[in-house]
């Protein structure tokens, strides 16, 4: 019997593929990377079966390559994601998702009494890692925002 591996999201010639995104955060990744501002082709899919994640999402972006800031953003929201750089239909590079020690402006502080939620002040956090989970300690109010409370700064 013929075994067909069907591509659920069509291949791209040149660009970036972000795979193994937990389905629950796919749209957060799309937002944080500001993909709505991009003029090249973007295809994405969600709720694919994944042995590791249960349900996963994938994003393919033609002709665009992530910078360090983009990779930092992905690493905070989807630390398990794989980022592949595609040239002429082949993976030429796997960008390493390294969680940064500090992040700025990406996530909101969950504390409503924090200065960043009360005045025009950008958020700044120290990244805390524990048992594979990421939490963010606010530079200002010193409260810890857990992953489940991550909200993207608009």
């Amino acid at each position: 019997m013929e075994h067909r591996k069907e591509l659920k999201v069509s291949a791209i010639k040149n660009g970036t593929v972000i795979d193994h995104i937990p389905a629950t955060v796919l749209f957060k990744v799309l937002t944080v990377l500001e993909l709505h501002k991009i003029d090249t082709q973007i295809t994405f899919g969600s709720n694919f079966d994944s042995k590791k994640l249960g349900k996963k999402g994938i994003i393919k972006i033609s002709e665009k390559y992530p910078d360090t800031n983009d990779i930092n953003k992905i690493s905070i929201i989807a630390p398990e994601a794989h980022i592949n750089i595609i040239k002429n239909y082949k993976v030429v590079e796997k960008a390493k998702v390294d969680t940064p020690q500090n992040i700025e402006k990406i996530i909101k502080c969950f504390n409503p009494k924090c200065i960043t939620n009360n005045e025009n002040v950008s958020t700044k956090f120290k990244v805390l890692k524990k048992d594979g989970e990421i939490a963010l300690k606010c530079n200002y109010c010193e409260k810890i925002t857990e992953q489940e409370n991550f909200v993207i700064v608009k």
């Binding site: 504390n111 009494k113 924090c114 200065i115 960043t116 009360n118 005045e119 002040v121 606010c138 530079n139 200002y140 109010c141 010193e142 409260k143």
Partner: peptide, 9 residues
Amino acid sequence: HPIEGSARY
């Protein structure tokens, strides 16, 4: 100041 983090800012 009543807001948390105001002094750091």
